[in-house]
């Protein structure tokens, strides 16, 4: 998009000669610009406050526990033995398992929506995916706690152990709630997110390229494999990173089914804990300063992780289109015409 010269503040006055007879707009103009600028600055201030408060809360723990905090495997607030590794482990394991399960399916769905699916089905499926991306996490948690966990305990976990029990991750107590349950609910939650973001990225591949390929006799799959995917690679990677960011930050659905146990076992069946869910559970009750600070430091780590992932993801996605593609996709009518 071209940047019109007129739109930089410095050159503003030269371009708006005030017509005779109109009231002075310069003042109104200036104050409204200031208002907009002020509103924009609020965003920066809010982010700064968030970062500063979390840092401030976490400082005692950073000082007292140092780097050992990240590698400590014990979480025993009563004895001041505070190590965050079990939470890092839980967060990473659940998010990775969720990604592994969700990404292939989400990409399949995205390709279905842009290139491969039967045309009459694309629109309804797309609408459903949008809708499901909007269902609140706590509703997913409700479903997972009441429907999914019992199903895992009675059916899925015994079956997994019977067939894949040679892997240590599919052995252990069959309780229902645990890392596996949390991973599954996360997978279900991030699937629509990744699918609709990838769809956006795929759509941004110019239609001319596709038409060119088809005109040369390529099949739809050839077009996807040779033209669309290479073109959209980065963007899709960005979509996956954003999905990972959502999985890492999700609190309620995970807190409801993860089993709330700060432990590192190799098994996916065993109960675990994640960074966001331990904050939700323990922050209101943490009494000692160090406990509060340690929880805040977990928040700080979480902040840093999501920060890194979001920045990386946005860099990748924004090469394709504006970074807020997620929200804009439904909103931009121009894009609707492609399907």
């Amino acid at each position: 998009m071209n940047e019109p010269a007129a739109l930089t503040p410095s050159s503003r006055s030269t371009h708006a000669p005030r017509p005779l007879g109109e009231p002075s707009h310069a003042l109104v103009d200036r104050s409204l610009v200031a208002l907009g600028g002020g509103a924009a600055c609020i965003l920066v201030v809010v982010l700064a406050v968030v970062a500063a408060v979390v840092l401030d809360l976490a400082l005692p723990s950073v000082r007292a526990l140092g780097f050992g905090f990240v590698t400590g495997r014990q979480w025993d607030p009563v004895h001041g033995d505070l190590g965050a590794l079990p939470f890092l482990y839980g967060t990473v394991v659940t998010s990775l398992v969720a990604l592994t399960l969700a990404v292939p399916v989400a990409l399949g769905v995205a390709l279905f929506l842009t290139d491969l699916g039967p045309l009459p089905l694309r629109r309804p499926v797309a609408a459903l995916v949008e809708l499901l991306a909007a269902v609140p996490g706590v509703v997913y948690g409700l479903w997972a706690a009441i429907v999914l966990a019992p199903l895992l305990r009675t059916t899925v976990e015994p079956a997994l152990e019977a067939h894949l029990g040679f892997l240590p991750m599919f052995r252990g107590p069959k309780v229902g709630v645990g890392l596996l349950c949390a991973s599954l609910v996360l997978a279900v939650m991030i699937l629509p997110t990744i699918a609709s973001l990838s769809r956006e990225v795929l759509r941004a591949v110019p239609i001319e390229l596709r038409e060119g390929g088809l005109a040369l006799g390529a099949t739809r799959w050839d077009v996807v494999r040779r033209i669309v995917l290479p073109h959209a690679k980065q963007g899709i990677f960005g979509a996956i990173l954003l999905g990972f960011g959502r999985a890492v930050g999700e609190t309620m659905a995970v807190a409801m089914v993860v089993g709330s146990r700060a432990d590192i076992t190799g098994s996916l069946f065993s109960p675990g804990y994640t960074m966001s869910s331990v904050m939700a559970n323990e922050l209101p009750e943490a009494t000692s300063t160090l406990h509060v600070a340690a929880l805040a430091e977990i928040g700080l780590l979480l902040f840093a992780i999501t920060f890194a992932f979001n920045v990386a993801a946005r860099l990748l996605v924004s090469r394709v289109r504006g970074p807020e593609a997620a929200l804009v996709r439904v909103v931009t009518p121009r894009l609707e015409e492609h399907t």
Partner: peptide, 13 residues
């Protein structure tokens, strides 16, 4: 104590 570290089991609120 109020927040003992149980050696086994599943935790819930």
């Amino acid at each position: 104590g109020t927040s003992p570290r149980f050696p086994v089991g599943v935790g819930t609120k």
